[in-house]
């Protein structure tokens, strides 16, 4: 196969950059959607109405026991059948990611709220704060500090997980690199490049999260 050929990567770069943009777009949209839905589910789980909180718990545990690939397949083949019209691969994958990640985000949010000691709520109530005020001024400021690093870490995992769209042929960073690797018969160069890029990006991001955690932890 000869030496490591950087030219192959340079020639494929414009095409692969397009894939990178899709990866970033998917990650950004899925993180936003997953967080919003995750907040709703976490609130439902903390609801005093038992059936509501059970339903939310069922949703979370059900999705967390499924492999992401299977969830992607579910939505890729079934959403078009259910709504009777075709939607793009990107949209179906985005739905799968949002629903899947929301289960994980909601667990992190719930754990963050639970991490604030129960005594603090009692103390806040004893001071005459209403339940809502206690949440707003006592619980959430601490809970958010606790959960933000974990939410960011989950988002880094999410960035890595987007590579799974490969299974439905969506042209993300990994898939475009794979296409070039097959076309030029250069798997070593292309896959090594993908691994190094992910390693550098994700490692730097997780270091940043670590610094953030140390700076803001209580």
């Amino acid at each position: 196969m000869g030496g490591f050929d950087f030219d192959v990567i340079a020639r494929g770069a414009p095409f692969i950059w397009g894939g990178m943009l899709l990866t970033l777009e998917l990650t950004a949209l899925a993180v936003t959607g997953g967080l919003l839905l995750g907040i709703v589910i976490a609130l439902l789980r903390l609801s005093p109405l038992k059936p509501v909180s059970w339903l939310a718990a069922f949703y979370v545990n059900f999705l967390r026991s499924m492999p992401l690939i299977l969830v992607i397949f579910w939505f890729y083949t079934l959403v078009p059948k259910m709504i009777g019209s075709s939607i793009s691969g990107f949209q179906s994958v985005l739905i799968a990611f949002v629903l899947f990640e929301a289960a994980y985000y909601s667990e992190i949010i719930r754990a963050g709220i639970a991490s604030v000691r129960a005594g603090q709520i009692s103390a806040a109530m004893a001071l005459g704060l209403t339940r809502l005020q206690a949440m707003r001024y006592v619980i959430l400021p601490q809970a958010i500090r606790n959960m933000i690093p974990v939410l960011l870490t989950q988002s880094i995992i999410m960035l890595q997980d987007t590579s799974l769209v490969y299974v439905v042929g969506l042209r993300d960073f990994l898939t475009t690199a794979e296409i070039v690797a097959n076309r030029d018969n250069r798997p070593i160069e292309l896959y090594t490049m993908v691994a190094v890029v992910f390693l550098v990006v994700c490692f730097s991001l997780s270091r940043l999260v670590g610094r953030l955690r140390r700076k803001y932890s209580l």
């Binding site: 890595q160 997980d161 590579s163 799974l164 490969y166 990994l174 794979e178 690797a181 798997p187 070593i188 896959y191 090594t192 993908v194 691994a195 992910f198 390693l199 994700c202 490692f203 997780s206």
Partner: peptide, 16 residues
């Protein structure tokens, strides 16, 4: 091992 997507690792082991 934690900062490279598992799928990419799978390709590295299989193809590279």
């Amino acid at each position: 091992f934690r900062n490279i997507p598992l799928l990419v690792q799978m390709f590295l082991w299989y193809f590279v």
